[in-house]
Design a binder for these strands. Sequence first.
RNA 1: UGGGGCGUAGCCAAGCGGUAAGGCAUCGGGUUUUGAUCCCGUGAUUCGCAGGUUCGAAUCCUGCCGCCCCAGCCA
Length: 569
Amino acid sequence: MSNNDAHDAPAEKTGGTNFLRTLIAEQIASGEHRGEVVTRFPPEPNGYLHIGHAASICLNFGLAEHFGGRCRLRFDDTNPDAEDQEYIDSIQADIHWLGFEWDGEVRYTSSYFDTLYDYALTLIDAGLAYVDELSPEQIREYRGTLTEPGKNSPYRDRDPVESRAMFEAMANGEYAEGTASLRAKIDMASGNINLRDPVIYRIRNKAHHQTGNKWCVYPSYDFAHGQSDAIEGVTHSICTLEFEDHRPLYNWLIEHLPVPSHPVQYEFARVNLNYTITSKRKLRRLVDENIVDGWDDPRMPTISGIRRRGYTPESIRNFCEMVGVSRSGGTVDAALLEHAIRDDLNTNAARAMCVLDPLKVVITNWEEGHVETLTAPGHPNRDDMGERRLPLTREIYIEKEDFREEANKKYKRLVLGKKVRLRNAYVIEAQDVVKNDAGEIVEVHCTYDPDTLGANPADGSKPKGVIHWVSATHGKQALVRVYDRLFSVENPAREEELLDGLNPFSLTVHRGCWIEPDAAEVAPETRLQFERTGYFVADRYEHAPGAPVFNRVVALRDTWAKIEARGNA
RNA sequence: UGGGGCGUAGCCAAGCGGUAAGGCAUCGGGUUUUGAUCCCGUGAUUCGCAGGUUCGAAUCCUGCCGCCCCAGCCA
C-alpha cells in the first residue's frame, strides 16, 4: 500500500470502486506494467456512439485519469466495407462533448498496416501461418461445430516459403476476394473456436478511408487489435465480455510476434438499458426507415441524441459511475439515467414558467392594460442565479389540466369557486367559466386578492395549490416537444419485430405554448426547468432567441401522476 | 454431448473466512408559493440450490440448477 492514498481520493469522491480499479491499484503497488496505466478507446468508425459506448469511454478514460495514466483514441479501422469518415468525425465530437481528451494524436489501426503486414510475414516464416485457398464456405465447413472438432485444411501444411510468396501476391492484387486468406496455424480441434486457425488477413478490393488504394489485404480484428495495443504501449486493453474467448488468441499472437510490449486484455460486462436498444444495426434501421429523425433524434440512445435531448455530459458520467463496472451482465433501469439528469438539472437549471396546453384566465378585478412586473428567483435555493422579471396582466394563460369545474380535495389546483396561488404572484379565485358551442371551457374568470403577494390571504385561508402561468400579452409563443421513451416494452431487442415495441406516444408536439418572455431569449442548448412541468432544453439546431423551440429532457418526479393512476383522483 | 463466463433485495452493485456497504426504484412521514427539491424512516436472519470443511462461510471444496457469449474472410 505505497502510493494509494492519492489514487483512492478520486474514487471516494465519485462514490465507488470496481474490479478493475481494485486490480490496477494492486498492480501499481506491486510494480506491474512498470506502474503505468495506458488504456485506449477503440471504436470502429461504422456508426454513431451510444450510451453503451459512454460506459466504455468513462471506464477507459476514467481509469487513466484515476491512476495518472493516459488514454488514447484509436479507430479500429480494419474493415473498409463498413467504415466512413462521417463516423470518425461524430465519434470525436461525442468524446469531447462527454468531457474527455485523448492523449496525443488520434490513432488509427490502419497506420500500423505496414508493421502488421511484416508481423504476418514473421508468422508465416515461423511456420505459424499459412495461405489457405479454401473458399469462405469451405472454411466454415472445415471449422466444425460447437460440439465437433474441425478438420485441417488441405493447405495447412503448405511450405512457408510458398505461403510467403502467395501472401505477397495477395497483397499485390493477384488474387480475387475470397480465393485466398491468411490463417494462423493453431488448433483445428480446440474447444475454443477462435483458435481453429483463425483468418488473420483477407482480401478486400476496396479503397480505405485512411490508406486509399494502398492495400487490398486487410488484417482481421484479432490480428490487428492486440498488436496495435502492443505498438502503442497499452497496458490494459479493456473490452466487453464477448471478447473473452478471444483472449487466448490475443495472447498467442503477442507471444509469437516480436511486439514492443505485452498488453493484457481485461473484459467487463456491457451495459444494457431497459426500454431501449443499442444494436448499431437496429439503430440504423430506425434512422433509415424514418422512424426517428436521424441519429441525433432526441429519442435515440446515441450520444448525439442524448445531447440533443438535453442531457448534460456530467449527468452521463455520473450515470456511468452509479451503474458501476462488473463482469455480471445486466440491464440497468432507465429510471437511473433519469435520476442522473434530474439530479444535475435540479441544482443547475434556472427556473421558468411555460404553459404547454393553454387555457385563458381573465382576472376581472385587474385594471385593463395594467402591467405589474413581479420578480421571481432564478432558482429557489441558489441566490447566485439572480432574479427574473415576470409581467402580470389582466389576461394570463394557465395549464388546461390545472382547472376543473369541480374536484375532490386531492386536486390541489384551480377549481370553480375555490382559490389557488399563481406561482410567484397572487392568489386568485375562480368565479365563472365561459364555454364555446361545443361545451368546452375556453375562459375562466377569476378575481385576485391584491394582499397576497408574498403573504397568505387575510382571512387566514391558505390555498394548498400553486399553479404556473404566463401573461397573455407579454408571454411569447413557443414550440415544445415532449418526449417519452421510444419503446414501450422493456426489452425491445427481444421483440420478434422491432417496430412492434415502439411507443406511439414517444413524441408530442405542442405548438401553441406560452413561455415567460425572458426564457424565450436563451441561447440554444440552454437548459431550464419549466416549473411543475419538467426540465427542458432549447433545441441545439432549431431554437433561436426570440423563436423558442424546446425539447423536454425529462419530467419532474410526479407523485400526483401516481396518485391519479391509482384511480384515487 | 464442446469452450468461455455470470448468478448478493424489483434494478445496478460493494464485499474476497469474522457475522450483508451504497445508489436507483418502492412505500410511509416532515418541510415547502414547483403534487419538485430537501429531510427522516422503510426491505436480505440472508448471498441460485444442495451437501461438505471450519469455532465461524456470501466468501474455501464438491455436486446440481439457471442465464449469457462463441461455429463472419464483422468488430
